[in-house]
Design a protein around this nucleic acid. Structure first.
Lengths: 226, 226
DNA sequence: TTTCATTGCGCAATCG
DNA sequence: CCGATTGCGCAATGAA
């Protein structure tokens, strides 16, 4: 009864067990926990009366390259979260306070980087996942030198792309809404037309049956027309 | 032939001329220019062969409280932009480079605050809008002291609300899409049913007409049922 | 490898 | 004053 969620960067490493999203690594902890909640509450096995209160969901990877490979384990009765953080550089806007899940309590711990504050668990047989948790800590990619012209150019290009993409999304959503409304109206018209045709058909059938009663016993009414 | 877009903070001041959005003040310059382009290109008056090249669209109000009341004027032949900026404090992440509109050239000018760099126009009879442009420069709200606990609490609460709202939006969009698909399927079924009923009706009508030819001249076929 | 497109997220402004 | 929305930039990632 131990469900484990992996969060990793490599697509090939995605076990795709619970979260079918492609964006797993970017989901916030609160979102992960809410997804877990949804999934658990939709599970027809145990009652799960309380909202299972995932303890931590802290260590926000706000604008740094955290979460190289985070891992969250959830036990049935003893809810626990194990998190491994492989940080590359100090988060810039790391303000200290952890995430707040919608409906869960929140425990802050170690508001800054580290790669040392793992294992916030508190029960059960948790193995040593350190080999998983620290796949490549000191990667030290090219320091992109935040102030370089090239960085700003890339940022600006991405900002343009983001705006474009969001405009597109907005238009798509609008079109979908309009299409839904249009289809609904069309549906009503079709329903009305069906009612009309059905009534007409009933009338004709009635007339034909009357004719049968009147015009004697012809037997087979089928007359394959011209 | 002078179209003026106002961007202001107070809802009551929204002339709502071109941009019906509630979020006018937050629209980026590139978005504004794209909206203008859309609007102009959909205008059946003049040809507007070139994409009208709105000059500036700079002065990014990225994470500061800029754009108290910006104003953009657009002339038919001489595209110009007047901007009034009432800055309260220096933008934090102001990196220097201006916005890049999707398909327009970009002229940078005065990458930092000011309330002095207005009137980038270059033609026509532009009046003095300074009284509009500087409604309340030195507002100097309560400095929220970026590091205060209260600030962080508010930020965290807002982050939670944002996540919640976006989850809701995602669900709404998904529901709309599913509803559209469902309506489409239903529509097809209804169309088929209509075809079926129509064919059946034609058959019965044909039968009835045959009966008329066979059974002599009854005259009126209408027999109001029981 | 580089570029653009998507997407989750935090911030700030604004609405209700 | 609060939460809810929304535009935006950033970073990670997908896709080509």
């Amino acid at each position: 009864d131990l469900i484990i969620l992996f969060r990793c960067e490599q697509k090939s490493m995605l076990p795709n067990l619970i979260l079918p999203t492609k964006r797993c690594p970017q989901m916030s902890d609160s979102r992960v926990s809410s997804v877990i909640q949804e999934w658990v509450s939709s599970y027809p096995g145990q009652p799960h009366s309380q909202p299972l209160n995932p303890v931590a969901s802290n260590q926000a990877a706000q604008s740094s390259q955290m979460s190289q490979m985070d891992m969250i384990s959830y036990g049935q009765s003893h809810t626990g979260i194990i998190r491994g953080v492989a940080d590359e550089r100090v988060a810039e806007q790391m303000m200290g306070l952890p995430y707040l899940s919608y409906n869960t309590s929140c425990l802050s711990s170690n508001p800054n980087s580290g790669s040392s504050n793992h294992h916030q668990s508190h029960a059960g047989a948790q193995q040593d996942f350190s080999s998983f948790l620290l796949p490549r800590v000191p990667v030290t990619k090219r320091s992109i030198s935040k102030d370089s012209v090239e960085y700003r150019l890339r940022r600006e290009r991405n900002n343009v792309a983001v705006r474009k993409s969001r405009d597109k999304a907005r238009r798509r959503i609008l079109l979908t809404q309009q299409r839904a409304l249009q289809l609904q109206e069309e549906n009503q018209k079709l329903q009305m037309k069906i009612g009309q045709l059905t009534q007409e058909l009933d009338t004709l059938k009635h007339i034909l049956s009357q004719r049968h009663l009147q015009g004697g016993e012809d037997g087979a009414p089928q007359e394959s027309g011209i």
